[in-house]
Nucleic acid binder design. Sequence first.
DNA 1: ATGACTCACATAGTGAGA
Length: 274
Amino acid sequence: MRIATWNVNSAKQRAPRLLAWLEQRRPDVVCLQETKLTDAAFADLFAAELDALGYAFASHGQGQWNGVALLSRVGLDAVERGFADQPDFATAEARAISATCGGVRVHSLYVPNGREPDSDHYRYKLAWLAALRDAVAAGPADVALCGDLNIAPTDADVFDPAAFVGHTHVTPPERAALGALLDLGLTDVVRERWPDERVFSYWDYRAGMFHKNRGMRIDLVLASAGVAGRVAAAWIDREARKGTGPSDHAPVMVDLDDAPDGDLGPMVPPPSAR
DNA sequence: ATGACTCACATAGTGAGA
C-alpha cells in the first residue's frame, strides 16, 4: 500500500499536476493539505476525474484558506472531519480529516503555521498539537499521521539552522509538541529511512531556493509501530516540485508491505528494506 | 539586499504562507 501526503497550495491551481501525478505515482491513499476549496468546489473539480482513477474521496474545506482531503483506492471508512476538542482560531478551521484506509487510521493534517513565536497564532498552534495528541491517543492503534506539520523536527531538517533561530517551526516548544506525538509510539518514517541525508519537503518559491536546495523538512509521516514495521520505502518526490506551476511543497511517499497475518506477530523488515 | 514568489479575493493591493 502506497501512502502519500502533499501540501498542494491550492488544489484548483494544482489540478492538472495533481491528476497527472496520481496517474504517474499511483498512490493508494493520498492526504492533501491547503486545498483552499469548499467541499462543494472540491467535488465539482475532482469527483469525475477521481472516480475515473478509482479513488473515493472526502474533503474538509472552507474556501480561501486551509482545507484538507483524503483520496483512497483501498477503502475510506469512518471519515471524521476535525478531531475531538480541536481548538479554533477566531472561527473553526479546516485543518484535519481522518479515515480508515486499508486497515490504517490515516490522518491528513495541516498544522497551524504559528506566524511569530509567542503570538496568539503560535499559542493556537501549540494548543492544536496538544489536542491532536490527545485525540490520537484515544484512537486506533494502527495510525499514520500525515501532512504539513509545520515543524522541522531537528536542525538537520532546515537548510541553515542559524537563519531560523527565533523563528517558528524550530522552537523548543514546537519540537516538544511534536515529541509528545512521537511519544505515543510513532516513528518519523522518512527520517528513519534516511538518517543522515539532507532531505527537504518544502522550498520557498523565492530566490531560487529549490534550485539551491535551501529547504525545510516539515511534511511528515508519523506511523505507529504496526505500520512503521511494514515500511518498504519512504521518500520525498522532488520531481513534483520541478517544472512549471509546482506547489512549494513536494509529496512524501511511503510504501507499506502487506499487513502480516495476525498469527505472525509484528513484522520487522530486514535492514536492507529500511 | 530591508529583495526575490504564489495564492485568494469585493481583480487592486493585501494578508498569508514558512
